[in-house]
């Protein structure tokens, strides 16, 4: 082997190493944003599974949660953890309020009416936020104060946000699975989800069960809002809408109504999005995400982990 051959080989190896490392870094970033989508998708999927409605205002509850947490840290000067709890409390109440005022009166009407109402609630929340906080973007300081982990001499960086987001999403998924599987309220929820009338005949208060679902979904939205803005630090009234739609896509991707499906869908969506930004074209990342969704739905109409529902004819 000649001198030039050897040096070419070394350069080749270095390039390959860099490619592999940047691939891993993209994967980590993708999992991180995917975990945020997963938390949002979990809220979507729970509400869909139990109340049988698509709550398009879910993304905007996320935005409200982020604003509340922003205000608590910036204006009241309280520690980040308090701001997260405050956001959860406010969003829970907001979720119950939205459900009670906007959706409950529409129980039993065709689902299209509920869907339109949800879009209306979404715009209402965005405009209300614009009135309260203005339309100028705010810079959201991350609530996570964990030092980033550096691997391969700083070539791969795992930030504190990534660690917290991934851990939080896994914890939430496990907690939700236990909650719906093991607790009395969780069982009531599954009963309502399967057959509302039969559940009523078991003495289950369907309205209260649906309210509880919204409360839980909205509390999750608050956590998602804080983590989303810790990852992508601009906060404005429309912050929640696009992640909301992506998370909805993730829920459909994984099989709407399924808790592990929402998790899987969220992570996959985040990874696909990041990879298409890194290797294809960032302008097309959304188009690619939806293309993948279309392909998956063509093959598996119920989503990756969804149950095949046979429509009665």
């Amino acid at each position: 082997m000649t001198e030039t051959d050897l040096s070419a080989f070394v350069i080749d190896c270095q390039e390959r190493e860099e490619t592999v490392l940047s691939f891993i870094q993209s994967l980590i970033n993708g999992i991180s944003i995917g975990a945020v989508y997963a938390i949002i998708a979990l809220g979507y999927t729970m509400v869909y599974g139990i109340a049988k409605m698509l709550n398009f205002a879910h993304g905007d509850v996320i935005m409200v949660g982020a604003y509340i947490s922003f205000c608590v840290t910036q204006y009241l000067g309280l520690p980040p953890i308090v701001s997260v709890l405050a956001a959860m409390v406010v969003c829970t109440l907001l979720g119950i309020l939205i459900e009670g005022l906007a959706y409950k009166p529409l129980r039993g009407v065709p689902s299209l009416a509920v869907l339109i109402t949800a879009i209306g609630v979404s715009y209402f929340l965005q405009n209300a936020a614009q009135l309260i906080w203005g339309s100028a973007p705010k810079i959201y300081p991350s609530v996570v104060a964990i030092e980033p982990v550096q691997l391969f001499g700083g070539q791969i960086v795992i930030t504190g946000q990534v660690i917290v987001t991934v851990v939080a999403s896994v914890l939430i998924m496990v907690a939700l699975t236990l909650f719906t599987g093991k607790t009395k309220i969780g069982k009531a929820m599954r009963a309502v989800s399967e057959d509302r009338d039969a559940a009523q005949l078991m003495g289950i208060n369907v309205n209260r069960t649906i309210s509880t679902t919204f409360a839980i979904g909205s509390a999750l939205a608050a956590i998602a809002g804080v983590l989303l803005c810790s990852t992508v630090p601009t906060l404005m009234p429309t912050t929640g809408s696009m992640p909301g739609i992506r998370a909805f896509t993730a829920a459909v991707f994984g099989g709407i109504g399924s808790i592990p499906g929402a998790m899987l869908g969220g992570i996959l969506l985040g990874v696909i999005e990041t990879f298409s930004k890194a290797y294809l074209a960032s302008e097309f990342s959304d188009a690619i995400v939806f293309l993948v969704l279309i392909l998956v739905l063509l093959v598996k109409p119920a989503g990756l982990l969804g149950k095949q529902v046979q429509e009665k004819v």
């Binding site: 607790t183 009531a188 399967e194 039969a198 078991m202 003495g203």
Partner: peptide, 28 residues
């Protein structure tokens, strides 16, 4: 109209919804 996705035991336990005395917090 059973809850087809649940076990037989869980179906019966859903029926006992109002007689199980256990709060939200303690079960969570």
């Amino acid at each position: 109209r059973l809850f087809t996705d649940m076990s037989a035991l869980d179906n019966v336990k859903v029926g006992m919804h109002n007689s199980i005395k256990c709060g939200f917090l303690s079960s969570l």
